[in-house]
């Protein structure tokens, strides 16, 4: 059956309904899935917040801990621990954090970098 015949099965209001349904579906994707986008990076040293940076800025933050200086990099949309004196480098090897509620913890140097969005997934994290 040619496409033109299928089009004949749709009435004027059907096109309207189809348009509304498509818009609703398209709107649901960002509405539901972008609720988890990170809005700012929170840097803690020894459990105290030392910096809060919106993820629209580009900044480099140096944080001092018991082992030395941890360097944190924030660029629009993501953040990472660029350098850290901890022996196993776990937080550095985590690379860029992009999702809300993700966290890189440099436990030996007592520094953490967390991304927060509109909703918080956890009340608190202990380590």
């Amino acid at each position: 059956m040619p496409i033109a015949d299928w089009r004949g099965l749709l009435r004027a209001g059907d096109w309207l309904a189809l348009l509304l349904a498509t818009l609703l579906t398209a709107a649901l994707f960002p509405l539901v899935w972008l609720g988890g986008t990170a809005e700012k990076a929170v840097v803690r040293a020894n459990g105290e917040i030392v910096a809060e940076v919106r993820l629209t800025e580009t900044r480099s933050i140096a944080v001092d801990g018991p082992l030395g200086t941890t360097r944190i990099e924030v660029v629009p949309g993501r953040a990472r621990v660029a350098a850290d004196p901890s022996p196993r480098q776990y937080c550095v090897r985590q690379g860029w954090l992009t999702q809300a509620n993700s966290i890189a913890i440099c436990a030996p140097n007592r520094v953490s970098l967390a991304l927060v969005g509109r909703n918080r997934a956890y009340d608190s994290l202990n380590y």
Partner: peptide, 18 residues
């Protein structure tokens, strides 16, 4: 209750599926 002249089975189907 929508007027049948403008709204056919496709509208009904979309309303029902959503």
């Amino acid at each position: 209750r929508l007027p049948r002249r403008w709204f056919g089975p496709v509208t009904m189907s979309l309303v029902a599926s959503f």
